[in-house]
């Protein structure tokens, strides 16, 4: 597993305490999991994604990630409706391991209330949180 200072934590996304990232583009929000989350889980073998049109309240489980011997739930960072899912993950779940912020994105959503995004962390705050967890 990676050390905290080896984590790839881009500046252009917002992080949740549950290790999901969110990135705003053209009024949509793209959501995925952080480098830390994929590293903790190890080789991801299957991803269960929601149906398009599904709606979630902040904190709801919107999908699961599976490695060979563990299942992790993904929690939605903002209240929203699902606009699109990354269908490439069905055949290539390893994309989440290889490229968690780009090709390994999970879903696109329409937020109910964009101001909820303000409650998420920037890179520095997230990094602080990760360092705190190590102690």
């Amino acid at each position: 597993m990676k050390e905290i200072n080896e984590m790839n934590l881009p500046e252009n996304v917002l992080y949740s305490t549950d290790h999901e990232w969110s990135r705003v583009k053209d009024g949509k929000v793209r959501i995925g999991i952080s480098d830390y989350a994929q590293d903790q889980l190890g080789e991801i073998v299957f991803i269960e994604v929601p149906e398009i049109g599904a709606t979630f309240k902040k904190g709801d489980v919107f999908g699961t990630l599976e490695s060979i011997k563990a299942v992790a739930e993904m929690l939605i960072p903002i209240t929203c409706e699902v606009l699109a899912v990354n269908t490439d993950l069905e055949g290539s779940p390893e994309l989440v391991n290889q490229d968690p912020y780009d090709k390994g994105w999970i879903i696109d959503v329409k937020p109910d209330d964009s101001s909820e995004l303000n409650q998420l962390m920037n890179k520095d705050a997230y990094l602080e949180m990760l360092k705190g967890m190590g102690k």
Partner: peptide
Amino acid sequence: STREQHIR
């Protein structure tokens, strides 16, 4: 195996 009781 993630379907099974020893994991889930």
